[in-house]
Design a protein around this nucleic acid. Structure first.
Length: 252
DNA sequence: AATTCCTACAACCGCCTTTTA
DNA sequence: ATAAAAGGCGGTTGTAGGAAT
């Protein structure tokens, strides 16, 4: 099957000029969105239809918010990402004026930061554990220790790991019952289940590391439950009706 | 003051799905 | 029913600008 369209020689790429933006805006205002290939042909723009669509959706479309993601928006992103993973366009439907590209960029910037610090922590723990294991092998008869001191740190690390596991189990209930219990919180409390646990660095890492799996059917929640949770998240932040946004597109 | 690092953003690419002829 | 075209999405890359060293 073909892609978007056959690449044409001499098609412009790279940053858009103000003139190109003007041409595209005028054309879309006159003819409406869609039929991007004909936009590219008819407007006189020497761009691919795909490029025109992207420029319009991510930059020129009226009602787009510019500037930093607000804490409210951040909360929504976190919650919805926990539900849906990297479904940026779906998440973007709950953030009026924000594009999937913007949310994706925001997430990646912050995700990478968290991932790096988490990796450092894990590496350090692994090093300590390895060191202790080496010490054990070198002095096996001292395992229980004359004073039990030798293994204390290793035990501590194990305990931390165990805690981490419990936390992650909590964050990502494997059964539907657990999930439904989570979903049935009072809206007032639902400043939400996730907010209470994100402060701890370890929980962040647990969240980030599992993001690709948890939204799979059977792993957690059915689609309706997830929709409901997303609506709650939206209502908490905007006091609006998320279903309008979800089904009707953007509210400006 | 110069260099490096980090963040935010714009844009492209490849793949998949949907629509159309 | 089928293939091509169009539309959409997520991943990735390049770069400008500010902060830190």
């Amino acid at each position: 099957m073909m892609g978007w369209e056959a690449p044409k020689i001499g098609l412009r790429k790279g940053p858009w000029t103000p003139q190109e933006d003007k041409l595209l805006t005028e054309y879309v205002n006159m003819h409406g969105e869609g039929r991007w290939s004909s936009v590219a042909r008819s407007s006189g723009l020497n761009r691919s239809g795909k490029s025109c669509r992207l420029r319009w959706v991510n930059y020129l479309r009226p009602g787009l918010k510019r500037g930093q993601i607000t804490p409210q928006e951040e909360g929504i992103i976190i919650e919805l990402h926990a539900l849906w993973g990297n479904k940026w366009s779906t998440i973007a439907r709950y953030l009026p004026g924000r594009t999937d590209n913007e949310i994706k960029n925001y997430w990646r910037t912050h995700y990478n930061k968290k991932e790096k610090s988490t990796l450092k922590q894990q590496k350090r723990k692994a090093e300590i554990l390895k060191l202790k294991q080496q010490q054990q092998q070198e002095k096996p008869d001292r395992d229980e220790g004359e004073d039990g001191k030798v293994n204390s740190e290793a035990v501590e690390i194990t305990n931390h790991q165990s805690e981490g596991k419990q936390q992650m189990v909590f964050m990502y209930p494997s059964s539907e019952d657990q999930c439904l219990a989570m979903m049935s919180q009072e809206p007032a409390n639902a400043a939400s289940w996730i907010d209470q646990y994100l402060v701890d660095e370890g929980l962040w890492s647990g969240l980030w590391n599992l993001d690709d799996d948890h939204h799979q059917p059977g792993n957690c929640c059915n689609k309706i439950a997830m929709q409901s949770q997303a609506d709650t998240a939206y209502n908490n932040s905007f006091g609006g009706d998320a279903s309008n946004v979800y089904y009707g597109g953007y509210i400006f």
